[in-house]
Structures are given as C-alpha cells and as structure tokens.
Amino acid sequence: MNSSLSLQIRNVQARYSLAWNRKAMVALDDFSLDLKAGEIFALLGPNGSGKTTLFKLILGFLKPKQGSILIQGEKAGTRKARAQVGYLPENPYFPKYLTGREILETYGGLSGLSRGVLKDRLEPILELTQMSSFAEKPLHTYSKGMIQRVSLGQALIHDPQLLLFDEPTTGLDPQGVDLMKEAMKKLRSLGKTILFTSHLLEQVETVADRIAILYQGKKLVEGSMNELLKENDAATIQVKGLSEEQLSGVKGALYDFGASAVEVTPRSGSLENLFRRYTK
C-alpha cells in the first residue's frame, strides 16, 4: 500500500450477474490505476465501457469480484474511505423544494458536519461554484447548469481529497463548461485529486493531466496527455500577417529543409470561440 496515493486500484474485476443464472457480464476486467494527489485524470470510453462501474466500485455501491481499491489508504466502501471522496453524479437529483444553500447544508449534515464547520465551508464553495446569486432560490427554478454547480458544491462540502466527476460537463452551455473546467483547475491547485469521465474529448484535452481509455471493461491505454498526443516527427507552425505569395515561399523553404509533407491552410476560428465572444 502506498499512502501517498489518493487512489490505488489493483487488478479489479467487476461482474454483473444476469437474471435467471445466465452468464455473468464482465463490466471491468483486471483494471489497475494509481492517482497521486493534485492530478486530474480523465477516463475516456464509449457507453458501457465500465467508467461508471468504476466509480460505483470506488464508492462501495458495487463490490469487486477480485482485486482491491484503496482511497487514501482506506478500503473502498468503508465510511472512512467515503469521507475522502466527493461524488458528482452524471444526472444529479436533489429535492426540488430545497434551495441550493439548503442542499449544501443537508449534504454537509449527512457528512456529520456541525453548523459551525458548515458555516466556514459554505462561503468558499458558493464562491468556487459561483452559486451565490441563486443559492437562496428553490431548485425547481434552476437550469441544468445551476443544478450541476449545486452538485459540485455538495461533492466538495465535506472537503474530500478525491473527487469523482461523472460526465461533469454533459448538457452544459460553454460558460458552464468553462466554470467546471476552472473549478477543476482550482481544485487541482488546492491539491485535490480528480478522476472524471467525459465524452467530450476536446474538453478533456484542455484540463486532464493524464488519461486512460476504456473499452469493453478493459483499459487500452494510459498516460499523460503530452506523452500520448505527442507525434515525434510532426510539428505545427502558426503564422499571421503573411500573404498567399509569402506563404508559398515558406512552404517551399520547408521542402528545402527536407520536410516530406507540408500543409498550409488558412486558419478559421472555432464556433465555440465565436459563441463565447457573443455571449460573454
């Protein structure tokens, strides 16, 4: 056991037994993972690849058929281990009649936090999640993005070391995505470890330190973003202010240096950036 690790998963296998004693379905097979404090790790994979199953194993909702999971050195599923985990589910549901602040207070209470401790915790969380403007309104008036922020707040309320975010940006507008990404970076700077899943690869690219790709319950690849995305013999050169004629000169010069394939295309801005510019 390495106590400096926030999460240590060793050779975990999870199976779902099917009804009427039919063959069991392997949801996760021989999966291992180590997460250090202060890193953001992304799990990528299509639906049914075992991402949510892994979260449920870490939280103790499912029990591994073999292997072990340790959170800050504590066995997954125990109360001590859960005290170290904050969970943001994919589709969070909270009582609609409560306000955002009441949700945070309730989940704080469920974590055994006293009123005094809660009072100290609430303000920084409201600030981080930018909930202050609507925290006193009941949940039924909230948009999807607002609910996601409340969900983030409840995951952080008991100050856990390890954060599990299941598809945290799905269904959010670009501002919501930005807020979530900023929050994740801020949490990383505070030394928190984040394990998250996403379908949106571009967003993963901008925030994750390391990634793993899961497919049919198996980990196909794992590594840092730089390592995995680096193409050793390829490079991108960005230029601005050159005419067509000058650009073909640059292209020729690159061929002269021995380049085998040179592509020059005029750059256009992304739709996302355009949207952001107008909705700021």
Binding site: L59, G60, F61, R79, K80, R82, A83, V85, G86, Y87, P89, P92, Y93, F94, P95, Y107, L110, S111, G112, S151, Q154, H158
Partner: peptide, 10 residues
C-alpha cells in the same frame, strides 16, 4: 438520490 446520500460518510 441514494447515490449522492450513500456516497457521503454515512
């Protein structure tokens, strides 16, 4: 809701 409740140290 049980997922968010039982995810807490309870």
């Amino acid at each position: 809701t049980i997922f968010t409740i039982l995810a807490k140290p309870l």
